[in-house]
Write a protein that binds this DNA or RNA. Sequence first.
DNA 1: CGCCAGGCCGTGT
DNA 2: ACACGGCATGGC
Length: 223
Amino acid sequence: MHDLLFEAYGPQHWWPAKTRFEVILGAYLTQNTSWKAVERSLANLRAAGAMTVDGLRSLTLRKLQLLIQPSGFHTRKAHALKKFVALLDDEFAGSLKKLASAPTAALRARLLALPGVGPETADAILLYALGHPVPIADEYLRRIAERHRLLIPAPGHSRKGYESLTTLTRQAFAADAPKSHARLFNEFHALTVAVGKAHCRRIAQCADCPLADDPHTAGDQSR
DNA sequence: CGCCAGGCCGTGT
DNA sequence: ACACGGCATGGC
């Protein structure tokens, strides 16, 4: 899938951010939110000098909420971001570098324990901000996998479902590409979003899906 | 106007 | 364990 999508779409240049902390901010802000809206919040944060850990720490909660308002859920997300900085300060001396040097499994568990951090956000931070080789499962990948009969269709999206999709992705890469997983996971997730947007929103758009000459449109699936 | 977006969480069954 | 609604805003 990675190779087919890469051939069709080319490099996606993810994550669109300059610093690790900017990736983390984006990972929180883009939860169920279009990236376009996130860009406006990020611009606000940049203008306020809050694109760094120190900058964000010095903001009041209210001020932070105001700055990230354009990307929605600002009350929850502002709280969550403050809690992330608190974790960084309390357990890693305020250092993203120290945070990044923690073992992957323990770090993932610690991130998941934070409010506002679920599986996808945790993995996005691990992969795109901290450089850990973890795959990212998301709604797009689930749709694509089901559409192409790689995953048994399941009605709800349970946490367990995402964890199993994560495991399957990791195993698939482990079998076919033993090396450079971080780079492949990085590109694959970006490509997944690209093809998901282009072809998996509506069944009619699957005609020229790069993943298959014969798209599996027979089995319905409304999305 | 209605639907959706690069999810997560609390609550009820 | 799973389903379901709330969270907020802007694009299209």
